[in-house]
């Protein structure tokens, strides 16, 4: 594959990366659409205008916090409280961004900064399972296409949810709630199959998450699970193969 890329012209290498990014983004799209539609519907019920609903998706691009934000707006919570709660809930992206940006260490800031803004739980997970693109020619187009695919689904879905209301039958949208979890599982399992230690890291992170959620908010629990689970990886993984 990398040999072929060398033979190809620069233009077709870019096109190849864009196509690959879009295709890896499709499972995210599938998971985002029903969630974004639901967000649009709820935000509308919370009294937000179509413009506000869409703008929040454009500017925040973080599902859980948008649901929370719309819910808090609905019950008339103060602005500062909503903003602080958003910060706590989305702080996990700081940890994820550190991991992803460290992969792109040698790439210029003109790529790193926009790509960092496209990081969500889902785009980060898919991008992190495709580390080889970081070293390939035009590989940044892969990550950009992946994120733009997810982002467009999120923004378009929110807009449609606000405009059209409940268009997906409840039983189907509820069933689709499993989509993103299934995607996470589908991303994790191939690595576990290759290396049992990866599975151990994930299970430790789950347990830390469950344990800390007894004492702190969900946002911090995920941050702790990710950090401590990852720290176990320092001792479990003896160096990188690459």
């Amino acid at each position: 594959m990398s040999l072929k890329a060398v033979v190809k012209t620069e233009e077709s290498a870019r096109l190849y990366m864009i196509q690959k990014g879009v295709s890896r983004g499709i499972p995210i799209m599938l998971g985002y659409l029903p969630v974004a539609l639901t967000y649009g519907v709820l935000a509308k019920q919370a009294g937000m205008t179509i413009l506000e609903i869409t703008l929040m998706s454009v500017l925040v691009f973080a599902g859980a916090s948008q649901f929370m934000g719309a819910g808090m707006i609905a019950i008339g919570t103060g602005a500062i409280e909503i903003i602080i709660a958003t910060f706590v809930l989305n702080f996990r992206h700081f940890v994820m961004s550190f991991s992803f940006m460290n992969r792109l260490r040698f790439i210029g800031l003109q790529w790193k900064v926009p790509l960092s803004l496209g990081l969500t739980d889902e785009t980060f997970s898919v991008a992190s399972m495709h580390t080889e693109e970081a070293k390939q020619e035009k590989g940044m187009y892969f990550y950009a296409a992946l994120m733009i695919t997810a982002y467009s689904a999120w923004v378009a879905g929110s807009f449609l949810g606000g405009v059209l209301g409940d268009i997906i039958p409840a039983v189907l949208s509820q069933s689709m709630g499993i989509a993103l979890y299934a995607m996470f599982i589908g991303l994790l399992l191939p690595s576990v199959r290759k290396e049992m230690r990866v599975g151990l890291i994930a299970v430790i992170a789950m347990l830390i998450n469950v344990f800390s959620s007894q004492f702190v908010s969900d946002g911090w629990a995920i941050v702790f699970g990710t950090l401590i689970g990852g720290l176990c990886g320092v001792f479990l993984q003896k160096g990188e193969k690459q």
Binding site: R105, M129, F184, I201, T226, Q237
Partner: peptide, 28 residues
């Protein structure tokens, strides 16, 4: 990451983050 150079164990930590994040995102 542009300014600071991390020691190897931090790199290993950051490389394990995606698997831990997946675990924490899946369950509960």
């Amino acid at each position: 990451v542009d300014k600071v150079h991390f020691p190897e164990w931090i790199n290993r930590w950051l490389n394990a983050i995606p698997y831990a994040a997946l675990g924490a995102l899946i369950f509960p």
